Simulated assay, not measured.
Amino acid sequence: MRFHHFANEVKDLETSVAFYKELFGLQEEQQIVIGEEKNVFLVSDHFRLELTSGGGQSVDLHQAVHICFEVNSIKEVIYRFNKNGIAALEGPIKLENDWQTVFFEGPNHEVIEFLQVNGERV
């Protein structure tokens, strides 16, 4: 397992993308649409940031964030969490770029995403 990205929900996706490109020197890697939600991945040599907008969550009270770890097998992660009595918050989901993702909640209600970018399919 290795760190894949940090995600932040934003109110204005285009303004936020421009901000991180201009001030942080990040480059756009790709865009992914999941239902109503638009996601833009920005990268540097050692860091990946996902900006997300339009998923229906309110960002007025707090920012919706999550941390993501890249794994070799989504199946193994799901098994390990289920074995410990923890059900997925969302997923597994196969994305349009063939990535697979699943979200779980940590002990302090933090959202943890696991992402499989290649290999065995769910």
Rank of each mutant, 00 (worst) to 15 (best):
G119S: 09
L26W: 11
N82C: 02
F114H: 04
F103A: 02
S53W: 05
E70Y: 05
L115I: 13
G25P: 12
F114T: 01
L51P: 05
C68T: 07
F41E: 08
V43N: 08
K75C: 10
Q116V: 05
I32Q: 04
V122D: 13
E105Y: 09
N118A: 06
N39Y: 01
V122A: 10
E90R: 13
A7C: 10
M1Y: 04
A18F: 13
F104V: 00
E113Q: 11
R80Q: 12
F6E: 02
R80E: 06
S16G: 09
H46G: 09
E37K: 15
H46Q: 15
I32Y: 00
G56P: 04
P92G: 15
D12P: 11
E36P: 15
L51K: 09
V77Y: 09
L23D: 03
Y79K: 08
T101V: 09
E76A: 04
E50W: 04
V111W: 11
F114S: 01
F3Q: 14
E113M: 06
N72P: 14
F6I: 08
F19G: 02
L95M: 12
S44E: 13
E113D: 07
H109W: 00
G56Y: 05
Q63S: 04
R121V: 11
F114D: 00
T15W: 06
G25C: 09
H5E: 03
N72G: 14
N82I: 03
V77A: 06
V10E: 12
L115G: 05
L51Q: 10
N82M: 10
F104A: 08
